[in-house]
Design a protein around this nucleic acid. Structure first.
Lengths: 117, 117
DNA sequence: CTGGGTGCAAAGTATTTGCATGAAC
DNA sequence: GTTCATGCAAATACTTTGCACCCAG
């Protein structure tokens, strides 16, 4: 656990969802010499350890978020913003008509336009 | 509508879900001179026209599928295979506890391991 | 002709790797 | 001293762009 690593985790937590570029610029305020390589290495290590997960966003860079409680995402197809939405996981699972092998994790994304565009 | 373009659409349809590399090698059997650039151009044009959509897969290349009826995806976290699963969209929407601005499209992914691994 | 698609090459962007250095134990 | 993360540079991977050519209307 290095200070850089802590800052990365904190920043992801603080922003909720953040992509690599924003993360880079935020972290550099505290650690001006940090490199993108270090960032990617830490991101990948966090991913492996299942501290964080990717939130892929069409036409935008993938964002990262801490894995806390299960929730859905509203993803704006215009600006790429992500908002968490609460889901009732039992009801959600009831919507699945087919049998599914080994359901590890269920992820729900709602796509739409957030701003009045 | 060029023969290449038709072959691309047909191949996506035939495979259900396919990534760019597989698409490239399949199409090249029919059109040995086709380039990745052409493939990407057509993919992007299909995406814009909403003929196809992306299916992002953690640790694997994005796959593409025709937009037919709404369904969910089972995504194997080991091999990246995708299987369509039928969903009851009304029940699924009932699982959403928060109000959502402009719900265009809802996408459900179930992650797990398909093979006995 | 003209418009639009193809395919090559090149550029651009994103991500990973190798290695020297330095801090922590 | 050994281990492990950092940060630079380079390599790799992925995707887009520019342009010359060709085909169909």
């Amino acid at each position: 656990m290095t200070p850089q690593r802590i800052a990365i985790a904190e920043t992801i937590w603080k922003y909720g969802h953040i992509d690599i570029d924003r993360l880079y610029s935020v972290i550099r305020e505290k650690f001006p010499t940090i490199s993108l390589a270090t960032l990617y290495k830490n991101i990948n290590s966090f991913l492996e350890k299942r501290f964080i997960q990717e939130v892929p966003i069409p036409n935008h860079k993938t964002k990262y978020e801490l894995i806390l409680k299960n929730h859905g995402h509203f993803i704006c197809t215009e600006c790429g913003e992500v908002r968490d939405i609460e889901i009732d996981e039992n009801v959600l699972k009831m919507s699945i008509q087919d049998s599914v092998p080994n359901m590890d994790r269920v992820s729900l994304s709602v796509h739409g336009v957030c701003c009045g565009k």
